[in-house]
Amino acid sequence: MAEWGSGGGSEGGGMSGIVNVRDLPVGARVVLGSGVEVEIVSNPGDGVWVFGRYLSAANGDPATVGTEEMIFAQDVVEVRG
């Protein structure tokens, strides 16, 4: 069973408007569902995960800025270029 309507409108999405993380190049800047901005640092191309560096604070914690973490595809809602 799949959850419907979870995709957000975004640039860089396909026909569905969902961001295809497989297409994200290193250096791309994306926005997560929480509003946090992330820069892509590597992309294994599996369509499920990318590696990103926080450009703004995650969970309101300033210490997270500049740290790297695996970002789940469903968290990525917008590509800013």
Binding site: S42, P44, D46, V48, W49
Partner: peptide, 13 residues
């Protein structure tokens, strides 16, 4: 060749 092995069901990697 892979950097990670990702489960296609729920996405554990």
């Amino acid at each position: 060749n892979a950097a990670v092995f990702t489960c296609p069901y729920h996405g554990w990697s």
